[in-house]
Simulated scan of single mutants.
Amino acid sequence: MVPPIRFVTERLDVSPWDTLLDDAEARPGFVAALTRLLTPEVTRHLPPVWQIAPGSDDFDSWIAARRAESAIATVHQSQGGALAGLLVTRAGDTDEALTVGYLFGTRHWGQGYATELMRGVVGWAARNGYARLEAGVVRDNAASAAVLTKTGFVPACVTGDGVDTYRLDIGSG
């Protein structure tokens, strides 16, 4: 089980989405922001289970399924508090490994947020006893592959399904 992820970077505030989902007053606004965030353009490089039609009437089931499979954190802008993206984590191949993924809304693309987030994840993982981070990137998502490389990840495996895996050994990152 992945412990709750909380950290702050220069421009980002990262905390478990459970806090917002479990708060009856905060949930409706958060779900509305999440619905606006998860556009087809944002989710196109993600696994099929992350695809959700805009205006889907089964969003609660989609959220429950994501909660069951991963530990998810919100990524809010420190200034203004806008929901910028999500950080998705789950246990890796060993107890010392953590699998990570992320997404950002289109208006937050190209501003260095993903690199800033991943650097924060590396620091958080080191402080929490993880020795390795793992990530997968769909081959045609060059921007995410560049973010991983920039933050110290190295290619680990090229798969036949179009997803390339990356890893970062914390001691060497």
Results as ranks from 00 to 15, higher is better:
His45Leu: 03
Gly152Trp: 04
Glu69Thr: 08
Val137His: 01
Ala146Ser: 15
Pro48Tyr: 09
Gly85Lys: 01
Val75Met: 05
Ala126Lys: 04
Pro40Tyr: 10
Gly85Asp: 04
Ser144Lys: 08
Arg11Tyr: 13
Ala24Arg: 12
Ala131Arg: 13
Tyr102Phe: 12
Arg11Trp: 11
Ser78His: 14
Gly171Ser: 06
Gly173Asp: 02
Val100His: 00
Glu69Pro: 07
Thr89Gln: 02
Val138Asp: 07
Arg107Pro: 14
Asp13Ile: 08
Val154Tyr: 01
Val121Tyr: 01
Asn141Ser: 03
Ala135His: 09
Ala125Arg: 01
Phe104Glu: 02
Pro3Phe: 01
Pro48Asp: 15
Ala146Ile: 07
Ala64Val: 04
Thr89Ser: 08
Gly105Gln: 02
Glu69Trp: 05
Glu96Ile: 15
Leu98Tyr: 02
Arg167Ala: 07
Thr149Cys: 04
Val2Leu: 08
Pro40Trp: 06
Gly171Glu: 03
Trp124Ile: 05
His45Val: 04
Gly120Tyr: 00
Gly81Ser: 09
Thr74Trp: 04
Pro3Ser: 07
Ser56Tyr: 00
Leu34Met: 15
Pro40Asn: 09
Val42Gly: 05
Ser172Asn: 12
Gly55Pro: 08
Asp13Trp: 11
Gly160Ala: 07
Gly129Lys: 15
Pro40Val: 11
Thr35Ile: 06
Leu86Pro: 01
Thr39Tyr: 05
Gly162Asn: 04
Ala97Cys: 12
Thr35Trp: 05
Arg44Met: 07
Ile52Leu: 08
Ser78Gln: 15
Arg66Thr: 07
Val138Glu: 11
Asn141Glu: 03
Ser70Asp: 03
Arg6Gly: 02
Ala68Trp: 02
Arg139His: 09
Val2Pro: 05
His45Ser: 09
Gly110Val: 07
Cys157Phe: 14
Ser15Leu: 15
